[in-house]
Design a protein around this nucleic acid. Sequence first.
DNA 1: TTAACATTGCGAAAATTTTCACAGCAAATA
DNA 2: TATTTGCTGTGAAAATTTTCGCAATGTTAA
Lengths: 214, 214
Amino acid sequence: MNLISEKTIERLILYRGLLLQANHENESGIYSHQLARMAGFTPAQVRRDLMQVGYTGSPARGYDKAKLIQSISALVDPAEKREIALAGIGSIGRAILAYFHGRSSLLEITAAFDTDPEKTGRVIHGCRCHPVDRLADIVRERGIRTGILCVPAGAAQSVTDALVEGGIRGILNYAPTRLIVPPDVYVENRDMIMAVEKVVYFSGLKTGQRKENG
Amino acid sequence: MNLISEKTIERLILYRGLLLQANHENESGIYSHQLARMAGFTPAQVRRDLMQVGYTGSPARGYDKAKLIQSISALVDPAEKREIALAGIGSIGRAILAYFHGRSSLLEITAAFDTDPEKTGRVIHGCRCHPVDRLADIVRERGIRTGILCVPAGAAQSVTDALVEGGIRGILNYAPTRLIVPPDVYVENRDMIMAVEKVVYFSGLKTGQRKENG
DNA sequence: TTAACATTGCGAAAATTTTCACAGCAAATA
DNA sequence: TATTTGCTGTGAAAATTTTCGCAATGTTAA
Ligand SMILES: NC(=O)c1ccc[n+]([C@@H]2O[C@H](COP(=O)([O-])OP(=O)(O)OC[C@H]3O[C@@H](n4cnc5c(N)ncnc54)[C@H](O)[C@@H]3O)[C@@H](O)[C@H]2O)c1
Ligand SMILES: NC(=O)c1ccc[n+]([C@@H]2O[C@H](COP(=O)([O-])OP(=O)(O)OC[C@H]3O[C@@H](n4cnc5c(N)ncnc54)[C@H](O)[C@@H]3O)[C@@H](O)[C@H]2O)c1
């Protein structure tokens, strides 16, 4: 099996989300053109993406929603429960803890880190908070592979170094900083300012642009 | 001048951010390979992107940082100050208000909206809060073109309809919902769950993937 | 003055991503 | 039973994006 592109993975995750939302409808099957309309892509794009997951639909009934969800999950979900670490329990850090809490049984934020002694030693939205000096050790001990970074820009690189030291494999970065990591650590940047600037730019164009994922 | 692609705009905005951060260094010029290293792209990619902004560097001195920042800004920034509306003053809504407050003189969140009477009628992080029924009117009156959506999933479409009714041109959407909008309204989706799922997927691969923007 | 050098701008090639177009198929219909 | 219908899966074409390769160019050094 050759590698599936980042864009395809993004779209597959989106399809799964849409299917989960649409799962209450009475129909058990769904056609590529229906999924395409929901997602904002072309039917051909949807079929091409679904080829990659190996689940095959029927020309008569389309794709079975439940089975498709299952097939996408088999591809994108980890085999077992994954713990996630969060660094920086400030305003977004806390919002993310609140939002994530109890949402998924497969993915759970189980350790949060901060320098502020007001925050460490407590449990916030179900998540135990630790001083940041213990980050590398805790990440290593628990085999945590994924981190969410919500510290101020000035602390982003040093906290990243600690995450990497602990053996992290992927970071979702909300700080407006380009992190330096070894080539086998995956980083997804989510700078809000840049996102707003982009939307403002497209808000100013006369001709409408395509919508996109994220 | 033919249209600049979404990806190029994203990268240009990133370059500007990196240049602003690096502006304190003593050198006034910068080479494509330096910018490329900072951004995580190839030098050829950087030069190709910079072609689009029209500012031309010198083989000897590279690009003048200040002039490059200015050229990119001329392309991506609005001509005058832009007001931004924010809907949903919950945990992320508030975090965004706090984070944005006083950060930019060109872009400012000047109106926030919520259903909760506890929140409306107040000023939060410098931003006046209004009941959501007044959203369309206020957006129209003030000519607001850009909106940030932080309401619960169930309210996302109806609040979007109000934004569109008010004449919005672009939406930064934090709700896990695919919004239905007219084709000339730009939507950038920022679903956090999907982002985490993606990072978790890449955290599980043996072979490292490319880092990417956002 | 001249040669060596590192870089830009950009045409063209390469790689990747998306779309087209249609064979093949199961169900519905006549 | 034969025919029509509308879908999937996919090879191939088209479009888009990235990278390559190099002439042109200003700078430095001899
Ligand atoms: N608030 C937003 O909407 C928003 C959006 C996008 C990105 N961001 C970015 O996210 C980051 C945090 O933003 P915020 O608004 O939550 O800020 P904040 O000041 O509310 O929170 C930052 C937190 O990080 C902690 N911290 C500081 N240094 C640390 C370190 N070395 N190790 C661990 N923790 C440390 C602080 O104690 C604090 O709790 C910033 O980089 C910001 O640019 C914020
Ligand atoms: N918290 C996060 O980190 C996070 C991250 C990504 C996305 N989101 C999404 O952002 C949205 C908000 O998340 P949150 O954690 O801030 O939730 P929250 O419950 O803290 O805030 C939601 C706010 O929206 C208001 N609201 C409800 N209906 C409204 C309406 N019709 N018009 C205007 N305002 C209305 C509520 O009064 C509340 O103030 C959700 O869709 C969530 O999925 C949250």
